[in-house]
Design a protein around this nucleic acid. Structure first.
Lengths: 122, 122
DNA sequence: GCCATTCGACTACATTTGTAGTCTAAAGGC
DNA sequence: GCCTTTAGACTACAAATGTAGTCGAATGGC
């Protein structure tokens, strides 16, 4: 189930998570702001994503309307979990410790997270 | 610089971050507890890591002693940053929010992180 | 001193990924 | 009713990755 989505494919998914359904052409235009891919490349990525069941298509006249079949939130959860498992033995605190040590955490980050934690507690 | 390290290669790095320097054979044995790779496979991964300058070698008699040239901490920082950039627009709070929503955060996690944050503040 | 062992180097090969071109059929303009 | 445009399908191909076999040289046991 859920074959791995590559980096390039992920960019395509982002477009559709942002706004769907869309046609291949529209997707390609939206991507050209970030990537310099030819239409053909985008079409290949779309096909692969359909093959991987990350997208579904719906026919509109002669075209396809692409629609995400995978929730962004689920994808994000999976990818985050992968990283945490791989690098921090599945534990979250080491991730934070690391980021804190690395000063990847700014003062605002800390404040925001603290507020968030406060809100989480009943 | 710093070419990307693949998943398989990363497993090899973990062994050496844990204990180094080691010979190919020892590395392979340590890996067989987790992976089912042949010695040949491990050797290939080692060569690739040396080519990528993630490992250095030191000759000991006829053998090589492999030694990490890349700090685990740096690798972890890079990978974490990659994920945060890719999925959370480079911001950490959304990562946190996401994990909180996903209930990837247990009560203990929350407590630990709170303590950590407290310690971080002067 | 010879031979079996063992090392790293080199070679191999399928799969995935990044990137894109070509083909065939339909559709829309006029 | 044609012809140009255009859509998705199919093909292409290099690089990276996962996985492993083979080879020549050095070495250590005896």
């Amino acid at each position: 189930m859920a074959e791995r989505i590559s980096d390039a494919e992920h960019s395509v998914m982002e477009v559709l998570w942002n706004d769907a359904p869309l046609t291949a052409n529209v997707i390609a235009s939206r991507l050209t702001s970030t990537q310099s891919w030819s239409l053909a490349t985008v079409k290949t990525l779309l096909s692969r994503l359909v093959a991987k069941k990350a997208l579904t298509t719906q026919t509109e006249g002669r075209k396809f309307l692409y629609h995400p079949a995978l929730q962004r939130s689920d994808y994000v959860t999976d990818e985050s979990k992968r990283l945490v498992d791989r690098l921090f033995g599945g534990k979250l605190t080491p991730l934070f410790t690391h980021m804190a040590e690395q000063e990847t955490l700014s003062a605002e980050d800390i404040a925001e997270i603290e507020a968030l934690l406060k809100a989480l507690k009943p």
